[in-house]
C-alpha cells in the first residue's frame, strides 16, 4: 500500500473504533464509582490472610497463578532475548575500551550503588506490607547494578556481574515459585495454596506464602533483568559485526 492509502485505511477504521469506544465509555459506571464487588471481596480475603498490602495478596495469593505465568513470560523473554542476541558465526568480540569517567560521577556512582541496592532489597522485603514487592524491588536492584556502567566502566561491571550465576538465579527464582506451589499440593492442599501460617497483620513475616513467592519473584526479576540488560549491553559494547576478517566466534569470554 502507498503511505497515503495506509493512512486513509487507518483513519476510516479508527473513526469506527472511536465510535465503538466512546459509545462504551459513556455507558460505563462513572469514574470513582462505588461498584467494586471483586475488589471488596479481595480486600476482605487479604485481611483474612493477614496480608496488609491487598495488592500483594491478590498478586501472590488470590491470583497467584497470574503472577506465576507473568514470571514465566519474563523467564521466556530473557531466554528468548539471549537466544536472539547470541553471538553468531562471523561476529567477533571486541574488548571494550576503557572509558574515561570524571571522578565526580565515579564518586556519585559509588555512593549511589549501595543505597540503590539497599532500597531495592527493602522494597522486595516489605512487599506484603507496603507498596512495592518482588517485581519493583528486583528491577531497582538490577538497574542499580548497572549504575556501575555509568559510574565506572564496562569492565568493572563485568567483574561483579559474571553472568552465569545470574542466569541460574533467574531459573532458580522461577523454579522456587513453582516448587512452593507444588509443596502445598504435597501437603494435601491445592496448587499454590497459602498453607504457611499467616502471622499477624502488619509484621514482616505475615501473609504466609506471600512472603516466599514475593522473594522468589524478587530474585527472578533482579537476575532476569540483569541478564536482559547485559545481553543488550553486550551487543552494544562488545559484539562486532563481520567487519574486518571475520574471525568466527572467539568464544564467550565471560
Amino acid at each position: 500500500m502507498t503511505r497515503r492509502g495506509r493512512l486513509l485505511l487507518f483513519l476510516i477504521a479508527a473513526t469506527v473504533t472511536t465510535v465503538l469506544l466512546v459509545g462504551a465509555f459513556v455507558e460505563l459506571p462513572d469514574f470513582g464509582t462505588n461498584f467494586h464487588p471483586y475488589g471488596d471481596r479481595a480486600v476482605h480475603a487479604a485481611l483474612e490472610h493477614r496480608t496488609a498490602n491487598a495488592v500483594a495478596s491478590v498478586n501472590f495469593d488470590q491470583r497467584a497463578l497470574d503472577t506465576l505465568v507473568e514470571e514465566t513470560i519474563l523467564f521466556a523473554a530473557v531466554l528468548g532475548a539471549v537466544v536472539l542476541l547470541r553471538q553468531v558465526t562471523g561476529e567477533r568480540r571486541r574488548p571494550p575500551r576503557p572509558a574515561r569517567v570524571s571522578p565526580a560521577i565515579r564518586r556519585l556512582g559509588v555512593l549511589l550503588l549501595p543505597v540503590a541496592l539497599l532500597v531495592g532489597l527493602y522494597v522486595v522485603a516489605h512487599g506484603q506490607l507496603t507498596p512495592g514487592g518482588g517485581f519493583q524491588g528486583g528491577v531497582v536492584v538490577a538497574t542499580a547494578l548497572h549504575l556501575l556502567y555509568v559510574a565506572a566502566d564496562y569492565r568493572a561491571l563485568e567483574r561483579i556481574r559474571p553472568l552465569g550465576p545470574y542466569e541460574v538465579g533467574d531459573v532458580v527464582g522461577e523454579a522456587a515459585y513453582v516448587v512452593t506451589g507444588l509443596a502445598a499440593m504435597l501437603g494435601g492442599s491445592t496448587f499454590l495454596a497459602n498453607v504457611l501460617p499467616w502471622g499477624t497483620l502488619g509484621t514482616l513475616t505475615s501473609g504466609g506464602t506471600v512472603v516466599v513467592l514475593n522473594a522468589a519473584v524478587g530474585m527472578e526479576v533482579a537476575c532476569g533483568v540483569v541478564v536482559l540488560l547485559a545481553t543488550f549491553l553486550d551487543q552494544v559494547v562488545e559484539i562486532d559485526e563481520e567487519s574486518d576478517g571475520a574471525r568466527p566466534g572467539t568464544g564467550e569470554s565471560r
Partner: peptide, 9 residues
C-alpha cells in the same frame, strides 16, 4: 502506589 513504583522502574 504499587503500580506507580513499577511504572517508575
Amino acid at each position: 502506589p504499587d503500580v506507580a513504583l513499577s511504572q517508575l522502574a
